[in-house]
Computed example of a mutant assay.
Amino acid sequence: MGRLWDAYLGTRRPDPAVQAVTAAELREVLLAVGAADVPFTVGEAGGRGADLVASWQVTEPPTGSGPARRQVERTFKIWLRLVPGEREVRAMDEQWAVTRAGAPPGRTVQREHGRGPIRRVQKEWSYERGPDGSRQKVVSFDLHVTRDMKDPLRDAVLAAGWTWRGARKS
């Protein structure tokens, strides 16, 4: 059951040949990931049961028009707690979604919140007529949170010789 649970939570272990760095060095590595050319930030968590937090805010393209217009604002966070004694980083995913209505969007019509592994892949598309008159699929929005946010953090942790362990509670 332990391996199944680890697979669900996304636990990864480093290559045994990799020499583990200290917790202070790992903290600097993770902060540097957030300073690189990525769509999210990494900063101090300010307590709250974690050492660092990676955060990404996304505003999806609006749908509809006039009073029926809807726009979703999403916030994804990965709370990171460093456990030096076990050389592991415990990562808890959290996400919020706020749907606003109207043009311009102002009135909140729906709120969502969730904790647990982020496995969000979203694509929005429409079909339009091409220059030759044939119907073509046009992708207007593509969001891969797991790939774009979690992978750089997890890769940095594994390269530092630490274990990445998914957690349900921080």
Rank of each mutant, 00 (worst) to 15 (best):
Q136P: 00
P39H: 06
A17C: 01
T41C: 02
E28Q: 15
S134P: 00
V58A: 03
R168P: 00
M92N: 10
V83R: 11
T75P: 00
H144K: 13
L80Q: 06
V72I: 13
D142Q: 09
M1Y: 05
G106R: 09
R87K: 14
K77C: 11
D37S: 13
P152D: 12
D132R: 14
M1D: 03
L80I: 10
G64M: 09
L31K: 06
R120Y: 14
R168K: 09
K77Q: 15
A45G: 15
P152F: 08
L143T: 00
V157R: 07
S65C: 01
A20I: 09
W164C: 10
G166F: 06
I118A: 07
L80H: 02
R119E: 12
L26W: 06
A50Q: 03
E88A: 08
L82G: 04
Q95K: 11
V157H: 07
K77W: 04
R74V: 09
R107N: 08
D6H: 07
V83Q: 07
M1Q: 03
E73G: 01
P105S: 08
H144D: 15
R100C: 01
T11N: 03
D148G: 03
R165W: 00
A7E: 10
S126H: 13
V89Y: 01
W125M: 05
R90I: 07
G10W: 05
W5T: 10
P152Q: 06
L80A: 07
G64N: 05
W125H: 12
G47C: 04
R13I: 02
R168G: 12
S65K: 06
V139D: 11
I118C: 07
A91I: 10
K123H: 05
D148M: 06
T163M: 05
G66A: 03
G102Q: 06
D93S: 14
V121W: 09
G114D: 12
S126A: 10
G46H: 04
E86H: 09
L158V: 11
R165I: 04
V42H: 04
K77S: 12
Q19K: 15
G49Y: 09
K77L: 14
S126Q: 14
M92V: 11
R147W: 11
P84K: 06
R147D: 14
R48S: 11
R27G: 03
